[in-house]
Design a protein around this nucleic acid. Structure first.
Lengths: 231, 231
DNA sequence: CATTTGAATTGATTTAGATCAACTTTTTTA
DNA sequence: TAAAAAAGTTGATCTAAATCAATTCAAATG
């Protein structure tokens, strides 16, 4: 992680993100002044579960995985963070520590905004607050879906759901499967790496997908959706 | 569920809840005008996963369980909703359908506020928005904890955590265990009813708790915390 | 009050998926 | 480019906890 120089052109571009549209010029100044731009390398941790969080991160460029950790070696991948999304929103206004971890899977360009600045803007600018609330709302929804997934679905359904999720972002990032390991995939499905490998092979045998080295080509999305629904 | 008559005394009392403190007189009027008071009987559903949600509920009196459902008969209990808490916050600004269900475990007095009114107030009154965001933040945090619980802990740890959670609200509601069935407990721990029964017996054998009919007396809270942490 | 219905209990059986172990392939790095 | 490390693969074994089945107990209801 390294802090980079200000670059106004860049900055203006960043603030075109939907949630910043509602800001007045003074509020933009407030964000600008309390913001730090940082660059992460592939493999770097953007956030570490349990550490102190006085800021919110905003992903400008690159991809990261958001995951929860147990004490030991086990991770569970929640989502892939894409440009225009926040990291750490959920922690910053309650506990002050990150409730999840995040690791860059490509080089990333991120900026950090102090939570005090965010709080100030929210209390001044209701429209901004409402747009944040919509994000919270969606995140909440996703978390409920995740809870249902891990509680009620078994291997096949989980893996199908994970594959569909990742395949969804393939159009924008065609090499997404190549940068994910089998363990990453397994952690998205919440199963062991060995089980993930076996499942993929069996899905290939049923011509639902094709394994080309690390890349995965979904051949029968409908079938996969069916498996995902059936659990 | 039955709609009850306005009662200003009651209403003023309700609006003493912390999150409403920030409202101006006009905003209070807005809430008042778009609000409906309802009474639920023990066993009634306050919200049903998947149904249309154009309003947020605010619990005035009584207790309810919030839970997620699978297609079939399985439920997982997320929390006990107490007076002063919202129901349906997470759904109302994104999908328009409840992402979970809720059932009254005592008679409840609730009021419903139209989401349009809530949205209006948020965009006008940043302080109110911020207080809502804090609630979202906390709910988010809890959901992450739940995900960790169901992913990484096994029977003993889950049951210990569930018991500690419920025991925490026993001071205010001494008969809380009596109104919960073994199945309710099992659904808090995310295990089968039979396993829950066996676990309780075994915890009793180890003098960690005492079973008096349906009531449960925690004898060794520290030990239980240890079990909960160990997973 | 008797009877039906639902909740709690217990032990026996089954199973999904983890873990383990051994090996191959790919990627790093010295 | 060789060797060491990491990732991927496969089949065998193990295990936590669900399911099943049978029964007791409690509570609701005509």
């Amino acid at each position: 992680m390294k802090t980079i120089k200000e670059n106004d052109l860049d900055f203006i571009c960043e603030l075109n993100a939907p949630c910043f549209q509602a800001l007045s010029p003074e509020e933009v100044d407030l964000v600008r002044s309390s913001r730090t731009q940082v660059q992460f390398r592939k493999g770097d941790n953007l956030a570490k579960q349990g550490t102190f969080a006085s800021y919110v991160m905003f992903m400008v460029k690159g991809l990261a995985i958001q995951y929860v950790e147990s004490d030991l070696t086990k991770n569970y991948n929640l989502r892939i963070i894409q440009p225009g999304e926040f990291i750490g929103l959920s922690s910053v206004f309650s506990v002050n520590t990150f409730s999840y971890s995040s690791v860059a899977i490509t080089d990333c360009h991120v900026f950090l905004v102090e939570k005090t600045a965010i709080a100030q803007i929210i209390s001044r600018n209701g429209t901004f607050g409402l747009s944040l609330i919509k994000r919270y709302s969606e995140q909440n929804m996703n978390l409920y879906d995740i809870i249902r997934k891990v509680l009620y679905k078994q291997m096949n359904g989980r893996m199908a759901e994970a594959l569909l999720y990742i395949n969804n972002i393939k159009p924008q990032y065609p090499d997404i499967f190549q940068i994910l390991t089998r363990k990453d995939l397994a952690d998205f499905a919440g199963i062991s790496t060995e089980s993930a490998v076996k499942l993929l092979k069996s899905l290939e045998k049923d011509s639902i997908l094709e394994l080309n080295g690390k890349d995965i080509e979904i051949l029968d999305e409908l079938k996969l959706q069916e498996i995902s629904k059936r659990g």
